[in-house]
Write a protein that binds this DNA or RNA. Sequence first.
DNA 1: GTGAAAGCGCTAACAC
DNA 2: GTGTTAGCGCTTTCAC
Lengths: 349, 349
Amino acid sequence: MSRYGGRLSSGGAPTLADVAELAGVSRQTVSNAVNNPDLLRADTLTRVQQAIEQLGYLPNRAARNLRTRSSHLVGLRIAPVQEGTANALMDRFVHSLVEASREVGYHVLLFTGEGEDVTSGYDDLLRSTAVDAFVVTDTYLGNPQSAWLRERRAPFVAFGRPWTDPGARHPWVDVDTAAGAHLATRHLIDKGHRRIAWIGWRKDSLLGEERRSGWSRAMREAVLPTTGLASRVEDTVASGRAAAEVLLDDARPTGFVCASDTLAMGVLHTLAERGLQAGDDVAVVGFDDSQVAQTVWPGLSSVRLPLEAAAVELVKALEGLLSTPSQVGPGLMLAPTLEVRGTSGPDLA
Amino acid sequence: MSRYGGRLSSGGAPTLADVAELAGVSRQTVSNAVNNPDLLRADTLTRVQQAIEQLGYLPNRAARNLRTRSSHLVGLRIAPVQEGTANALMDRFVHSLVEASREVGYHVLLFTGEGEDVTSGYDDLLRSTAVDAFVVTDTYLGNPQSAWLRERRAPFVAFGRPWTDPGARHPWVDVDTAAGAHLATRHLIDKGHRRIAWIGWRKDSLLGEERRSGWSRAMREAVLPTTGLASRVEDTVASGRAAAEVLLDDARPTGFVCASDTLAMGVLHTLAERGLQAGDDVAVVGFDDSQVAQTVWPGLSSVRLPLEAAAVELVKALEGLLSTPSQVGPGLMLAPTLEVRGTSGPDLA
DNA sequence: GTGAAAGCGCTAACAC
DNA sequence: GTGTTAGCGCTTTCAC
């Protein structure tokens, strides 16, 4: 990839015309060499490729974008960090999304919602043809962006199923978190626990209810009690701690399964305050496999979401969507795994 | 922002020509209305703006980019998440960077380094004119990208000072982490601690040595001993734990200041294993104010870097760089703060 | 298989 | 102040 020392057309980066001149062909042939190599005769192709190499030519994106009416950019809206929580799924997801996108010739463009109006960021990007498509990540109930994007015929794929949108036609990928909660609960049952509490989110969270169903199903299957063992609170450490206090006093569980690592950390607070050993005295399993779960003593067992795989699948769906828009990608449900750490404790006698 | 129902030129999004026709002016006048409004007469401007509003017109980016030879995109390389550590500075930084960029009309484009060759990702983006500039975040010693970018006359700003690059001409913003370590150490001294240990990084980390200097200066100023109280290890929880064990056995410190929350978590592991109460028995202060520090019991005191401010300053520098490239932005050093939590413990008697 | 012509939508430079 | 002209670098269409 040596730089050509000669005179270029505009003094700036080499263009198609520069390559064409050097190779002694027309501009069109160079374009074909780049985009449809099999259209050229072998020797012409070689000659053009040498010229490209020599000049260090790379197609100008703006020109290509203008001509092809596509930017090869996908938009991703990122939410602010929730300080004081363990919630940080985006890092892993974003990195994987960027890598997977690059492999199919796309780049990820970030934007933020301007305060209240979630759709404003999408609108600008869409109407100014800045991105070809979006990756939507927060599809929780009541979020208008899916329906909004559909109305505008904006191509998008979603991480998260269309919970209540019956008209949804877009490809989506989601994680079966009920299976995750089931996995976590089953894990504690297998260790000998009989009274396993659930700390989840408020009832209006469909995702929370789904996770809860995994716990209750596992308990039901094992013919274990659930009455008085469930709590629904906000997703904060303080709420998790308070819920754990009440549950420990009233229901005497020997294990906790939580809808998030944030809530699980709250449980660990309560245990620490009462001089109880997480793992030895009371088992705790969280959700999301956050860095917090990974680094806290003695290691917080946690359900790990396959974020990397989700991103890869989303990019696949995106590729299909943009190449053959007619084909409706079906939804894809991925299975989470369980990371077993110290707070699972030993097998009970 | 109502959508115009009428017939558009190409059946797609409205263009400058559509607006011009509707407003009864030339395309150039519409362009001026958008980019140099004060060039128009008030009534013309109003008429054009109404037409723009009516059509829901937004300039086509590709066309504008091609013409102005700028993409209004800045590239940011993101590294994979370091699993098993508490290190996750990027989330806060990226969000702030995206917001600050948007306010000056820029978007952030993400890319990843393809394995070994750190510069390859930059090269492609640069030569294909995909981005106008870069934000470089890992300026640690030996990282070739600053020098590489300078050679290619690629505009960039750096989060992190040019540690050893004497030829550096680019604007940069950094955090005075020596001041942070000093703050943390001083905090423990003020609480009555006399034997305060340091757990930092290996000697070849200039950043690690800088942080260490904050500790040693604070100790020296207070005429306190440092001999045998410092440890240099890798940035992992296990290393922090091992270092804490040795230090507790050999040097009997009552407090620890660590170069990262990851190392501090290692100290907490050792304390928990020995039945010692973090805060009450031994004080611990970390670095980075990670979510781990915020959620772990009883709260890990930690030095907080002003990442949001750093991002804002970088965007300012970027703006200056791209509008008046001649003006060399000087380096800017920001001061960290200390988040005091439970592991600081009570004041000693 | 290769080349010539046209034009994507916009803005810089100039004329009026 | 406003309109006209030209062209950014590329790809699509159609001759040859």
